[in-house]
C-alpha cells in the first residue's frame, strides 16, 4: 500500500469526505507532509474504489458544483487495520534494535 493510499483510507475512517475534504484531512493528519494534488488524489481514489476499499457515499451540490462523498467499506477498514499492524510490527522491530544499539566505543553491539 502506498503512503498516499494509506493516508486517504485513514482520512475516511471517522466520516465520509468529498475530494477536497480528503486533501485537507490528509494534510492535517500527516502534519502537512503529504499534500495531495488533484490528479494524484483521483488516481489513488479510483483504484481504491475499484479494489472495493472505498465506495461513494452520497452526492451534494455545493455552490453549483458536484461534491461526491466517499466512505470506507468494511474491506477497506480491515485492509487499513492490517496495514497498521504491519507497520507497527516493523516499527517495533526497528525501535527494539535502536534501543539495544550502543556505539562500539561504549562496548555494545555496533
Amino acid at each position: 500500500m502506498t503512503e498516499q493510499a494509506f493516508f486517504i483510507l485513514t482520512a475516511l475512517v471517522d466520516t465520509p469526505r468529498h475530494g477536497y475534504g480528503i486533501v485537507g484531512e490528509v494534510a492535517d493528519i500527516s502534519d502537512g507532509r503529504v499534500q495531495l494534488k488533484v490528479g494524484t488524489l483521483y488516481g489513488v481514489l479510483d483504484r481504491l474504489v475499484g479494489g472495493g476499499l472505498v465506495e461513494p457515499d452520497r452526492e451534494e451540490v455545493h455552490q453549483g458544483r458536484l461534491r461526491r462523498y466517499y466512505r470506507l467499506t468494511e474491506q477497506g477498514r480491515w485492509t487499513l487495520a492490517a496495514e497498521v499492524e504491519r507497520q507497527a510490527a516493523n516499527a517495533r522491530v526497528a525501535a527494539k534494535r535502536l534501543r539495544a544499539w550502543r556505539p562500539a566505543t561504549e562496548g555494545g553491539a555496533a
Binding site: G19, Y20, V38, Y42, D46, R65, R67
Partner: peptide, 17 residues
C-alpha cells in the same frame, strides 16, 4: 472514458483548493 466519470468532480476539487 475517464473524464466522463471524473472530470466534474476533479474540477470541483481543484477549484475548492
Amino acid at each position: 472514458s475517464y473524464r466522463a466519470v471524473w472530470e466534474d468532480e476533479m474540477v470541483a476539487t481543484f477549484l475548492d483548493s
